[in-house]
Amino acid sequence: MNGFLVRMLITAVSLWLAALIVPGMQLAGTLTVLGAALVLGIVNAFVRPVVILLTLPLTIVTLGLFLLVVNAMMLGLVSLLFEGFTLGGFWSAIFGALFVSFFSWLGSAFIGESGRYEVIVMRRD
């Protein structure tokens, strides 16, 4: 449970940073950011795999670039489901998905599966 909360906070921070950078992406407040992060996690866990499976031929033809559109669609779905989170259009969804993906990846790079900060030490003999 601890790892889930840490990852949700990382997603919330990445949504907040993306809303600061991307024009057309707006979040109403702190509770909106946390709620949108929770809904985005649920949508990414249940809806995104089905959409990826259905769009697999198009993803293969575009050499994986269509996954960016899938991520933007998931962000757009969250904005439809959650009041207080708005997207200005297709391009703000694309750039928002890029920034949320990047910041989430960056934050998760330092977090292990248990939700704790991990340091790997390698020794040369």
Rank of each mutant, 00 (worst) to 15 (best):
L77V: 07
S79G: 10
F99W: 05
A109V: 10
L40E: 09
M122P: 09
L63S: 04
A12V: 14
V51M: 05
L63R: 10
G76M: 06
S114P: 00
A19N: 00
S104A: 02
F82S: 05
G107T: 14
V78H: 06
F99G: 04
T59S: 13
F4I: 11
L38M: 04
A12Q: 13
V6G: 12
I42G: 01
T59P: 04
L80I: 11
V6C: 13
L65S: 01
L63Q: 06
S79E: 07
V39A: 14
L54G: 00
L58Q: 00
L5I: 12
A45H: 02
V51F: 01
L106S: 08
L67Q: 05
A93E: 00
G64Q: 00
L31K: 03
P23G: 13
V121N: 13
G24D: 12
A93V: 03
L31S: 13
I111T: 03
V100P: 00
R124M: 12
V100G: 05
L15P: 01
T55L: 08
L58E: 01
L5Q: 01
G29R: 03
L54E: 03
P49H: 08
V119D: 07
L65K: 02
L77Y: 09
L58P: 09
S101K: 01
F110P: 00
G88E: 09
F90W: 07
G84H: 07
T32N: 03
I120T: 15
G96P: 11
I94K: 08
R7N: 12
V70P: 09
I60D: 10
F103D: 12
T86S: 15
L58M: 13
V78C: 02
I52Q: 04
G64P: 06
L106G: 05
L56F: 14
T11A: 15
L17N: 09
N44W: 05
A36S: 15
V78Q: 07
T30P: 07
D125C: 01
L20Y: 09
N2H: 15
L40H: 08
V78F: 08
V69M: 03
G112W: 08
T55A: 11
A72D: 11
T86I: 08
L77I: 04
L63F: 10
L68N: 00
W105D: 04
G76L: 11
